[in-house]
Design a binder for these strands. Sequence first.
DNA 1: TGAACATATGAACAATTGCTCATATTTGAG
DNA 2: CTCAAATATGAGCAATTGTTCATATGTTCA
Lengths: 108, 108
Amino acid sequence: MDNSLALTRIKETITRNGELFDSLAQLYKIFADSSRVKILVALTQSEMCVSEISEFLSITQSAVSHQLRILKSSNLVKTRRDGKNIVYSLTDNHVRTIIDCGMEHVTE
Amino acid sequence: MDNSLALTRIKETITRNGELFDSLAQLYKIFADSSRVKILVALTQSEMCVSEISEFLSITQSAVSHQLRILKSSNLVKTRRDGKNIVYSLTDNHVRTIIDCGMEHVTE
DNA sequence: TGAACATATGAACAATTGCTCATATTTGAG
DNA sequence: CTCAAATATGAGCAATTGTTCATATGTTCA
């Protein structure tokens, strides 16, 4: 073939950095759910506690808690206790960037 | 509450643009698989046919075909026939941008 | 301390997903 | 036209996922 050289180079890159692409897929998996995306979008506007989030999403407080657990264990959000409430907020601006990036494609 | 006004505004935004965020999640769902990410990354380097892709991924030709079908129906890749082969390539640069964006977070 | 509120957690279940296997379909060579 | 190579497709299956329900944990206030 003509481009067999280029292909083996690409193959090398993919197999060598396999774990990196696995992490990448893992990251996108977090954004791949409607509820989680909405939670993250909301948090780009303001920090919020669980009951506030479950108020405007049409899902149970329990469901919100489960999703927040995923977001927290992925280090995308952090928590702070405020009396009886636990306030969630974004850990950094990466989330904002990723959402904006995807938005550009969706709103083409 | 202090910020109830801000909250209702956020709630409005989320519920009003609900379908938009659904599409966003749908988009990320495509990137949320290791095989698909690797295929897309490979295609950022060069156009390739099915057999070439299934060569460096450790999955069946059938599996690759199934994934490419998803990528094509999502308009992320396009096809071109070259003899017996069908050559796949990215439809535009959005894919590149999205991958780069996620990479930045993964390789922090 | 006890009642009420806010959040977390575990079990269970339906739905989705990505793969393999077997089998079409399409194309080029002879 | 026939055969082999390349790709597509459908059925079936195991694994994962997102939700709900019930319940546990933790905090405030009286």
